[in-house]
Design a protein around this nucleic acid. Sequence first.
RNA 1: GGGGGCGUGGUGUAGUGGCCUAACAUGCUGGCCUGUCAAGCCAGAGACCGCGGGUUCGAAUCCCGUCGUCCCCGCCA
Length: 604
Amino acid sequence: MTGRRIVYPPGGKMLKSHSCGELRLDHVGQDVTLAGWVHRRRDHGGVTFIDLRDREGLVQIVINPESSKDARTVVETLRTEWVIQVMGKVNKRPADMKNPSIATGEVEIELAKIKVLNPSKTPPFSINDDSDVDETLRLRYRYLDLRRSRMQRNMKLRHQVTKFIRDFLDERGFWEIETPILFKTTPEGARDYLVPSRVHPGEFYALPQSPQQLKQLLMVAGTEKYFQIARCFRDEDQRGDRQPEFTQLDLEMSFVEREDVMALAEELFTSLVETVTPTRELLSKPWPRLTYQESLDRFGDDKPDIRFALELQDISDLVQGSGFRVFEGAIEAGGSVRGINAKGAGSYSRREIDGLTDFVKTHGAMGLATIAISDDDEIRSPIKKFIAEDLLKAIIDRLAAEPGDLLLFVADSNEVVYEALGKLRLHLRDKLQLVDANVLAFCWVFDFPYVTWDEEGKRWDPSHHLFTAPMEEDEVLLDSAPGEARGQQYDIVLNGYEIGGGSIRIHSRDLQEKAFKLLGLAPEVAQERFGHMLEAFEFGTPPHGGIASGIDRVCMILAGEPNIREVIAFPKNQAARDVMAGAPSAVDPKQLEELHIAIIEEKG
RNA sequence: GGGGGCGUGGUGUAGUGGCCUAACAUGCUGGCCUGUCAAGCCAGAGACCGCGGGUUCGAAUCCCGUCGUCCCCGCCA
C-alpha cells in the first residue's frame, strides 16, 4: 500500500530535507539533504554510486570525477551501514540508466557535500538482503535485524493494524482505557508471572493473563464501550504462535447480545484486511459460521482451516458389524471410525504412509488404517483381508475416492479421532500444498460446550473462562447435565489459527456463584479470589460481552510469516529468554533481600 | 517434563570413517576499472568442524554426555 508521503521541514529542523524513498521526477532540480545508511557502494574507479537507505526506501547517489575532491575522499572510506548525510541535486536519470526495480529509479542525486554521521562495524549478518540467518543471531542483534526490509515491513504492517483498529473503534464510540499491569493472581488457567511486593513481605502481584476482570468492571463502571491494545502475560511453554508476553485487542460492550459482538468484530476484521492488505483474497464475506460440533465433525478441529476441503467422513455406520475388531471395538467403546481422502496421495510409498502413521501416533491415535488406490485402480490396504469386499467398496464410495487417492482412517474415542485426523489434515495440507497463501479464510465457531470434564482433575473446566455466560436456555442444565450446556462463546478463526474469542458474560452475582460452584471453586475460595467481581455484580451491572483477539497472530498471518516472533520487535526465544539483553538474569542478593525472597536451589 | 531436527570461516551451505593440508557462495581486506544498481575483474586473509569424553591405526563424519537453538507432545485460549 502507498504510505503517507513523509515531508521533512525545510530549513534544517532535521538532518534531512526529504526521505530517500520519497524522491520522484517531481523533485528534479531541487537541492536536497538526505541522511541514512549506506546500503551499497559501487566504485567504478571514476564514477562511484552509493545506494542510500532510510526507512522509506533507497535512492542512488552519484559521485563523478567532477565532484569535489573532499567528497570523493570521504566516499572512498564509506562502508555498508555507515550513517551519512548527503547534500546534492536531484537529477533525472538518462533513459537507459533508469532502475525500474526501485521506486526512486527515475532519479539520482548528484553529490555536492557529504558528512559521515557515524561509521559502522561490519555487521554480523547482511542488512542489505533478506538472506536466511540463524534466528539466535538475529535475536542477539535484533536492532540490526529490525533494520532489514522484512522486519521493517512487518513493523510497519503491525503499526497499520493497530492504527486501523484504534480509528475503527474510536469512530464507533469506544474508549481506549489502560488497565493495570500489576494485578492479582488467578491460579485458574495459565500460570501467572508473579511480582514480589517490597512493601508487603510475602505478597505478590501477578501480571494479567488478560484484562478480563478489569474490562468487565469497566462495564459495571458504565463505560459501555471499551477497548485496549493490551499486553498479556502467561508463564507457559512457548510455541511458534505463543510468547510469554503477547498483545491482545481487548474489547467489551454493554447492552449487547452475542450477535452484536460478532457483527462488530466481523466488520472490524473484514475492513481491516481490506484496508491493510488489499491484495489478499478474502475467501468469503460474510464469514461462514460453524457450530463447535460441526467444526469437529467436518474438520476434526475447533479452529478449522477452511481454505481446503479434505473433510472428515464418518464410516462408523458402515463398519459396525464388519467383524473387524479394531473398528468395532472403537465404536462399542463409544467412539467412532472416521477417515479423510488424501486426494492424489494414492501413489505414496509404504515408507511415506508409515510416516503418516507415526504422525497420528504422536497425536494419540493407536494407528492409521489406510486404503491406497493406485492410478490404475489397484487397491493396496492392510485392512483388505479383514473386511468384506463390498464393505471396502462402500467405504471407498463414502469417501468419494477415485484412482490416485489415499484414504486414511482412525478408530478411537471421538476425542482422539478428531485430534488425530484434524492434525493429519493440516499435515497433508502442507505436504500436498493444498492452500493458496494469498487467501484469508475467516470463520466463526460458536455453541461451544459450556464446560468440559477434566478426567485428571475430576472436575469441570470452563471451555472459555470463568465469567462466560451459559446459553440462557441451557442454564437449567447446569445442575442436571453440565456437559450438555452450551456457552455464549464465539471464536474467530483465520486460516486455522484461533485469532480471537469472546463471550457474553455473566452479570449477576447468583449466576456467577453458581458457575464458580460448578467449576469447583469453594465459596470461600471464590470470595477470596473474585470477591471484588461478585460484589461489583450487586451494583447494577449491565448485560455485557466482548471479545479479545491476538494481535500478534493476526499480524503474523497478514504478514505471511511462519511465527509471531517475526512480528514482535523484541521477542523471546523458545526458552522464554531475551537473548539480546540476557533476560531473565540473576539479581543482586540485596535486591532479593529487599523483596524478602530466598532462592531455593534445584534439587538433584 | 517428554520426543525429534539442527550446530562446519563473519553469514549461508557442502562434506556423514582415510581422497579434508576441510570445499562453495557471499561478506571482509587490498588493487584495477567513468554508468552501475546483487556492478565486474585480480589478489589475499579468514573455520582445526558447539563443548567434553569415548570407539578406531585413523573422527567434522560413529557412540555417550553436555550446552545452544528450532519444531512437536504435555501445558497453554
